[in-house]
Design a protein around this nucleic acid. Structure first.
Length: 375
DNA sequence: GTCCGGGATG
DNA sequence: CATCCCGGAC
């Protein structure tokens, strides 16, 4: 057996730097730039670990611009971990409505509960304790601890990954395991010991504002003197991006059932893969070989055991992951209804319009509700 | 209309 | 390694 040498990713030809030799000059330039160029974001006015945690979880897979509209209202509703732990999951999900990836909200809520059970009133500066919490991966943990407690922990997420890959000339898919591990080591070698929180924020801010995916602003980049990708002449070629899976089109029918001034909603169970815990109008996919009419009739029969005329309200379109869904909604008015059977849901309720306003729905279901109100 | 970007988890 | 989500850019 031959021992494997330490993993080295493919590097761009020409001058590429060792992370260790870059540390001082790069860190100085980056922090200097950040002091001038940093955006004024709501979560940059606090060192409270809980608030930083909330912002970091919201920012997972979500653009800054979107999070800005959610952060402060969420903090106003749940100012501390204790408040969050005491809230119902439904209220937390309602505050999260529209942000997507609802597992994040459920995880945040559960994590708050566990911390309070353990006797904490905030996140402790202890990576091992944080690692026990749902939704707390290595990135989020280190981002929070470096910002709130100045622990010199590295980060790698999409922005910093792109910045580091370009700076160090990594000519490999950085998402692949060994390359990603190498980038984590590079990030650890570079992170400022004096102000790790600002350094990590600066790395991401640079990726967000200057070192962008398609048109990097190398002419105004503070890291230009050391950047292998800028020297190569086509920095946008790094990192190599893997192709998206093909989009699958899906058609559905939804049943909007009205009884007087109340509407039938059902709750998706905690075990649902998507939109767990959110409420919705009953709906069903039109399977290949079937028709909208047949699917609608089947849904109506399964729910109420009846066949009744219904009126087409309109169609709601949305995209989720690799699916593009068109949902045709039908209105059904029922005078007096026995409790329906709702497969794939763990609860149902007849809600007044005012209650619907405080009930968590997915984005397409909220749009369907708006359609119902206008039509 | 279609494409793009973005961490955690089974 | 596939899956969650949405808004905004194009």
């Amino acid at each position: 057996m031959i021992k494997q040498p330490a993993m080295q990713p493919n590097r761009l030809p020409g001058v590429v730097h060792d992370p260790a030799t870059l540390k001082e000059p790069f860190s100085l330039a980056l922090l200097g730039w950040f002091a001038k160029a940093a955006r004024d974001l709501p979560w940059r006015h606090t060192t409270d670990a809980y608030r930083i945690w909330v912002s970091e979880v919201m920012l997972q897979q979500t653009q800054v611009k979107t999070v800005v509209g959610y952060y402060q209202p969420f903090i106003d509703l749940f100012p501390t971990i204790t408040d969050l732990a005491a809230a119902t999951e439904e209220r937390v999900l309602r505050a999260w409505e529209g942000l997507g990836y609802y597992r994040r909200a459920r995880g945040l809520h559960q994590a708050a509960g566990r911390l309070v059970e353990m006797g904490y009133h905030n996140l402790p500066p202890d990576p091992a304790v944080l690692a026990l919490l749902p939704g707390m991966g290595e990135y989020t943990r280190n981002a929070v601890l470096s910002q709130a407690y100045r622990l010199p922990l590295p980060i790698v997420e999409a922005n910093s990954q792109r910045v580091l890959a370009r700076l160090l000339g990594v000519d490999d898919d950085p998402a692949r395991g060994p390359v990603r591990k190498w980038l984590w080591q590079a990030s650890a070698a570079l992170v400022s010991q004096h102000d790790p929180g600002a350094f990590n924020q600066a790395l991401m801010e640079l990726g967000s504002l200057i070192c962008t995916p398609t048109k990097p602003g190398c002419l105004v980049c503070p890291a230009r003197p050391w950047c292998a990708a800028a020297a190569s002449g086509s920095p946008e070629a790094i990192p190599r991006k893997s192709p998206r899976p093909a989009v699958t089109r899906v058609e559905e029918v939804a049943l909007v059932v009205r009884q007087g001034d109340r509407w039938l909603f059902a709750r998706r169970p905690a075990s649902a893969s998507r939109w767990a815990g959110l409420w919705e109008f009953p709906h069903r996919e039109i399977l290949a070989g079937s028709t909208g009419e047949a699917t609608l009739a089947g849904l109506m029969n399964d729910l109420f055991g009846l066949a009744a005329p219904s009126l087409l309200l309109g169609t709601v379109r949305h995209s989720i992951t690799r699916y593009q869904v068109a949902m045709a909604a039908y209105l059904l008015e029922l005078p007096d209804t026995p409790v329906p059977c709702l497969p794939d849901h763990d609860a149902h309720a007849w809600l007044h319009a005012q209650q619907v306003a405080t009930t968590p729905l997915s984005a397409p279901q909220r749009r369907l509700w708006q359609l119902v109100n206008r039509g």
